[in-house]
Design a protein around this nucleic acid. Structure first.
Lengths: 160, 160
DNA sequence: GAGTCTGTTGAGACTCCGTCTCAAATCAAC
DNA sequence: GTTGATTTGAGACGGAGTCTCAACAGACTC
């Protein structure tokens, strides 16, 4: 994380931007958390540590973190955009349960290979990809198959 | 499309729902269009054909079409959710240019294989996937490399 | 075809998420 | 410490989608 902090500070310097306490607080919070978090969660977390930060600043700083290459912005599951710090050297993707909304991360080198292949075929140069596989997790599938209590009418009755 | 219309009508009957003129108008419009369209576009198109339909009904009917398995809802590119009718037997994915926002569809059987593999490994049963590859299209890459007029400061300066 | 029942609709208020504005505060160069 | 540009917070704003409820209209019965 020290290295990433230096990367962020360097990015700001290079862009002629200031290294403010709000920006550092947000940077640290996002690296403290594992997995995804949305802007509101980040705001609450940073405020919870005693920093007075506004929503506008959260969005502005997240934008900077994305531009600096340290954070990835994604739409996973139902709504809103989620942020996560980038794990160097491994891009992961998501399995989303369409019943309960559970999100499981996975890493698949095969996709990176496919990505390159597809880009070549279409004259694109790929930066990164976002893959979401939607389906039923183990628990929800079992719950559907076993009791037959609930009629399986709707494919996805609003995740919790 | 006749077959799909019958499928939609059958779905409504089976669910004890009514086959209204608004629903049919929307169904026909979405099958007339190729590619993606968002709720507002669909609303405008249906209204453009003389049907008096409200925004609430557009969203409600799209929800039904998704549940009936005829339409897929996706987030592609920047914002909002897009709808498209499902092309039977082929799931396609998207290449998105992070400069100009161009969306290119592609079909890759390899991903379906990977999808199955990943689901098995995590105890999921897959319904479908959404893959987006973000990068630069041919035109934007050339424009970046050639003139060197604009400094390449930002990875993605807001697609048009 | 008329009557009735119940699902569906339209209008618009509402919510949620994210962006924008602008005066005040703050950082950094001098 | 002064100065000036950048950053911030508060809250207005905007777009997308949802919800509410009275009015409407399919579908069933007679």
């Amino acid at each position: 994380m020290l290295q990433e902090r230096e990367q962020f500070a360097g990015f700001l310097r290079q862009q002629g931007l200031r290294l403010t306490s709000e920006r550092m607080a947000m940077f640290e919070e996002i690296y403290r958390q594992h997995g995804h978090l949305d802007a509101e969660e980040l705001l609450a977390a940073v405020q919870g540590r005693g920093h007075q930060v506004s929503r506008a600043t959260v969005y502005r700083t997240l934008e900077l973190l994305v531009r600096s290459g340290l954070v990835r912005k994604q739409r996973v599951g139902v709504r809103g955009q989620l942020f996560e710090h980038i794990h160097p050297g491994q891009q992961h993707d998501h399995l989303v349960c369409s019943d309960c909304g559970t999100v499981v991360e996975f890493v698949s080198p095969g996709i990176t290979a496919l990505q390159g292949e597809i880009c070549r075929a279409h004259g694109f140069s790929a930066a990164h990809h976002q893959l979401q596989i939607l389906g039923l997790c183990n628990g929800c599938r079992t719950a559907r198959e076993a009791p037959a209590a609930e009629p399986p009418r709707e494919p996805a009755p609003a995740p919790a």
